[in-house]
Design a protein around this nucleic acid. Structure first.
Lengths: 103, 103
DNA sequence: ATAAACAAGTTTGCAATATAAACCAGTATG
DNA sequence: CATACTGGTTTATATTGCAAACTTGTTTAT
């Protein structure tokens, strides 16, 4: 019984950080999103968004493509298949915990 | 729309640590639990359990009563009303996030 | 032409913290 | 009496999330 509760213990720490969960949630709903869009949607500072994106990229949860919009640099992000699966598992784990702790 | 997702951003950090969420989940299901019981159920080391309990107590999410079982020290923990409310809110927030990110 | 402002990020510095290891007080055992 | 065991607490360390500073290039003002 408490073993079910404990399943939260090995939750994906990368996604368990709210800022990153939100980033991934956004990316899960769109084909791709650029840095500026993500900054507006998440409300993160550029510095922190950059750091979180780097971690997600390192884990291969997202792919980052650096290109240009005219002469201005543009950073384009999209969720990888790995990322999508990790996010699915993460959501499932949260849901499980919530349901195990009902009333 | 992304504002709903962003609601996760201000999640209760004290409860968002899985070890503590599990502790509180256990306490939410029983009248009270002693240190040894919690250690067994959570699988935490004594040091870490002690540290997490201190934080929860500091936040007044749990009350700790130090007593004896015969001659042996016993630390008894129970969820406070504040703790129960915080945990309810936390669960609600998780559920909300999961539902906002459906497919 | 050159300085000042702006855009889009990245890097750095620091404070908080989760975990493991060491420590401690008291009790039972050989 | 010494050694081991119980039930914890404290300390040390390595990782972080975040804010502030920095960078590279472009546009605007003078």
């Amino acid at each position: 019984m408490a073993n079910d509760l404990r399943s939260l213990a090995d939750v994906d720490r990368l996604l368990h950080e709210p800022s990153r969960a939100v980033i991934v949630a956004i990316l899960s709903a769109v084909e791709s999103a650029d840095f500026i869009f993500l900054q507006r949607e998440t409300g993160l500072t550029r510095g922190n968004l950059s750091a979180h994106l780097s971690k997600l990229e390192e884990a291969k949860y997202i792919a980052i493509e650096k290109t240009y919009r005219g002469k201005i640099p543009m950073t384009l992000c999209r969720l990888t298949e790995d990322g999508r699966q990790a996010f699915d598992n993460y959501r499932r784990k949260l849901l499980n915990f919530v349901e195990q702790t009902k009333q």
